[in-house]
């Protein structure tokens, strides 16, 4: 509880991920904010995420196989 109280007493520094307008709103209120452009992989498309995961899994095997040689 004391940690939470001290947190609210401190100056807030924010890292914003994704939607830029959240960072803009905080900036207008004088909050120190760093925006990071982030989007979900494949724009959230589950089918493409699954295909990319297959490629990643295959590449992990390839790299492990190479390491074992």
């Amino acid at each position: 509880m004391s940690k939470l109280v001290s947190f609210f007493g401190q100056k807030v520094k924010v890292i914003n991920l994704g939607i830029p307008s959240f960072a803009e709103d905080l900036k207008k209120q004088g909050v120190e904010v760093m925006h990071t452009e982030w989007r979900p992989p494949a724009g959230g498309n589950k089918k493409i995420q699954a295909l990319l995961a297959k490629v990643e899994a295959w590449q992990s095997k390839v790299k492990a196989g190479k390491g074992a040689r």
Binding site: N45, L51, L52, K54, V55, W58
Partner: peptide, 13 residues
């Protein structure tokens, strides 16, 4: 690009 990815997975993975 999505179709190419799908074909790539079919061919290699």
């Amino acid at each position: 690009f999505e179709d190419a990815l799908e074909a790539y997975v079919e061919m290699y993975c």
